[in-house]
Simulated assay, not measured.
Amino acid sequence: MHKVSLPLGMRDEFGMQAYKKHQLEKMLEQLLQQHDFMRIDTPLLEYQEVFADFDLKQRRAYHLVDNNEAVVLRPDLTLPIARFLATNNFDLPRKFYYVGERFKIAKSLSGKYNQMTQAGIEIVGYTSLKAELECFFLINCLSRKFLQGRVRIELGDACFADAVLDSLTKDAALKAAIKKQLYQKNIPQYQKMIAPFVTGKQGQFLQKWPRLFGDEATVLQQVSQFALPAAAQLIINKLERVAHWLKQLPEQPVSLDLSAAPPQTYYTGITFKGFSDDISDYLFSGGRYDHLLESFQKKAEPAVGMGIDLELLTKVADFDIPKPKADLLFFEPEQLSEVVQICQQHPNLTLCLERDLQSAQQTAATKHVKLFRIDKEGKISDAT
């Protein structure tokens, strides 16, 4: 007997949930196309080397072998686009969007699937912060359209931790270890690692650092009490400026997290997440990664990207789903030519496949739709 269970972490999609997801995808595509984003589709399989700068072990990717070459089911959709841009002669700047499947093996007992549908955008070739602002604009649009404006945008910066720690030590391993404990909010271990530095100029800030997250005005007020290294203060100034712009969007709450890990290791500037207080996971995630293309070509290109968890957005989005009710057309097999003509004239009809008229009438009554039939003259008539 054939095995009928699915591989661990996979799922089937059907019915209204699949239909809702498809409708949401269509509306998202319409929005992005209105704003001059070009669709790009990359294959599920990529050479493992494409993700050489990506922590495949941490991401728990699916590894395969193709003609003795190591390949993976893509655990990320940004790096394949970087690979595409490096191997195709595209004029930049350009804005892309994608919708596709991403595969990564979820941690045991996490309750998460290993396959998820992700949508996203890549804005390549723009150095201005306006690229980040377009991401925030789109999040705000989707928040108001589908979530009654409940999405909070949380800002951070991928370089902030290094800007602070570079002023304390040149030991790369120590800096990496401090960042790990900081990002994981492992306060006891973090306190042990910063102990040699708490008597210095940054001591008070270091002790407060893991708790510097929340409402942007509160966090900025707390940070203003400390004398930060010049590079770190420049980042704070930039975050304050961006937060000020963000608050001009309608119904848009803003927060800061100065102790959050960047979404990926390749981020180089402002990072952000979009979440709702009644949802444990974030719906949107992204930021700036100006050196990403250097992995594939000599010339770097400025870039900002954003991923959208389409599975989660489908689950929580609140919008009217069109549910067209098609009336039924009962026919005999020899009437197929008439069926074609009638369905062209009446596009709201769908074919009734019951064997006999009585069964067709029962089906129409169950579905609360009208039933029509084709008479001997090839004309349509009411058969309800």
Rank of each mutant, 00 (worst) to 15 (best):
A163Q: 00
I153P: 01
M16T: 14
K112R: 11
K104S: 13
A231V: 01
A230Y: 11
E216C: 13
R74M: 02
H22R: 15
F275T: 12
T363W: 04
C343V: 09
K104H: 13
S295N: 15
P347C: 13
Q189E: 13
L246I: 01
V151A: 01
P322S: 08
Q221V: 09
V198S: 01
K130G: 03
T127Y: 08
V72N: 00
L138W: 03
R373V: 04
E377H: 09
K376G: 10
A232I: 04
K107M: 00
V223T: 06
Q335S: 13
K107T: 04
L246A: 01
V316I: 08
R11C: 07
F226I: 02
N114F: 09
K104E: 10
L328H: 06
I236V: 15
Q341F: 02
F272L: 13
L92C: 03
D320A: 15
A177I: 10
R241P: 09
F137E: 14
L357V: 04
L228G: 03
S276G: 10
I270K: 09
G111W: 05
E134D: 14
R355F: 14
L246Y: 02
A227K: 04
L85K: 02
T384I: 11
L64I: 04
D327M: 06
A106I: 05
L32A: 01
Q191Y: 09
Q33C: 10
A161M: 03
T314D: 02
E354T: 12
A260G: 09
Q264D: 13
E338K: 15
G307P: 07
K179A: 11
F146M: 10
I321E: 07
C159E: 07
Y183A: 12
H2L: 14
A383D: 05
S359F: 09
E49S: 14
K325P: 02
I187C: 07
E154I: 07
G149D: 03
Q207H: 00
H291Y: 12
G203P: 02
I40E: 03
K26E: 10
D36A: 11
G149N: 04
Q23F: 03
S259I: 02
R74N: 00
D166M: 09
D55T: 11
R39C: 11
R144I: 11
Y267F: 15
R288W: 03
A82Q: 05
S5Y: 12
D257N: 15
P347F: 12
K379H: 13
N237D: 12
I139S: 06
L212P: 05
Y62E: 07
D215T: 11
L32M: 03
P196R: 05
Q358F: 04
R241W: 14
R102I: 12
T117A: 09
L129W: 11
L79N: 06
P333H: 00
H2I: 12
I81C: 02
L155K: 00
Q184C: 12
F330V: 03
H368V: 14
F330T: 06
L246C: 05
G125C: 08
H63A: 12
F84D: 04
L31G: 08
K315G: 08
F54A: 02
R102M: 15
R144H: 12
R211A: 15
P43Y: 01
I308E: 05
F372L: 03
V4T: 15
Q207F: 00
Q189I: 06
